[in-house]
């Protein structure tokens, strides 16, 4: 491929813009000074050890992890059957039903959070975790519907019919033939939904309660009041997790599957 100078120049500038800020954060996590300085002086891992020793960070990390897992599982449990039903049938209402399932994307996250806060927390006095779980489920569902729906569109349903003809009943055929063949779509949906739930701020902002806070909200509150390299250290840890997830996706599905 021959190169075009102008295009290359723009692309280089854009990629510097995208990466340099994250590189700077990474560097500042290792500085010895008690406020963030760049370039850093000295080299230390104390901010990492401080982070791992901090109870509020660790408990919010645990909460975020559990929340993202449960919300994603719930979204898969609800979303996969719905996508399957929508792609197997040609009812006239299907496009509208699909739009209904995708509707959480049209409601700003902060509004979802606010409405659930009013309704679940103030009116129903629901436990904080339940509220968070429902909010994150709403955020996750559209990813499942979209990604699993796309892979069901690619699926050749005659394979399922062959399974029936070989004596497989319908639930079993779904589990043994359909599910394995849309596996990559499910994994991609899981990853997208997990990461977006894990990173979510607007929905969580309203729904976190005393002593129960997700990692992003804890981090945000921390940044608002103090400014030391432990935030950089947490950022590095979070980016590390993202890298691991991306490597897993790249090895199993190819990185392009997250871009659909």
């Amino acid at each position: 491929m021959r190169k075009s100078v102008g295009l290359t120049l723009i692309a280089v500038v854009v990629f510097l813009f995208l990466t340099v800020p994250l590189i700077i954060i990474t560097a500042t996590a290792f500085g010895e000074a008690s406020t963030i300085r760049f370039p850093i002086q000295g080299f230390t891992l104390k901010w990492f050890t401080a982070t791992f020793a901090s109870r509020s960070f660790m408990s919010s990390l645990g909460l975020s992890f559990a929340l993202a897992s449960y919300a994603t599982l719930l979204a898969l449990l609800v979303g996969i059957p719905a996508s399957y039903a929508l792609s197997k049938t040609t009812f006239r209402t299907n496009p509208r039903l699909r739009a209904f399932f995708l509707s959480p994307t049209f409601v700003p996250g902060i509004v979802v959070g606010y409405a659930l806060f009013q309704f679940l927390v103030i009116q129903w006095r629901m436990p904080v975790f339940a509220g968070l779980l429902l909010g994150h489920f709403l955020v996750s569902l559209p990813y499942v519907i979209r990604v699993v729906g796309a892979s069901l569109e690619q699926f050749d349903f005659s394979i399922e019919e062959v399974a029936w003809s070989l004596g497989c009943n319908k639930p079993k055929a779904f589990l043994k033939v359909v599910l394995p063949n849309i596996g990559s779509g499910i994994v991609a949906a899981f990853m997208l939904s997990f990461i977006n739930s894990f990173n979510n701020i607007p929905v969580s902002m309203f729904l976190t309660g005393p002593g129960v806070s997700t990692l992003p909200t804890t981090l945000m509150n921390y940044i608002e009041y103090s400014y030391d390299p432990s935030v950089s250290a947490i950022s590095v840890v979070l980016m590390g997790v993202t890298v691991v997830l991306m490597v897993i996706v790249e090895r199993t599905l190819g990185i392009g599957s997250l871009a659909k």
Binding site: F15, L18, T19, L22, P216, I223, Y227, T242, L258, A259
Partner: peptide, 22 residues
């Protein structure tokens, strides 16, 4: 290059905002 573009997308928005505070 796709991975390089997707990476910031998957990075926590708080982290990304924090980067610009720095």
């Amino acid at each position: 290059l796709m991975a390089l573009s997707i990476f910031p997308l998957l990075t926590n928005p708080v982290v990304r905002a924090f980067a610009w505070i720095n």
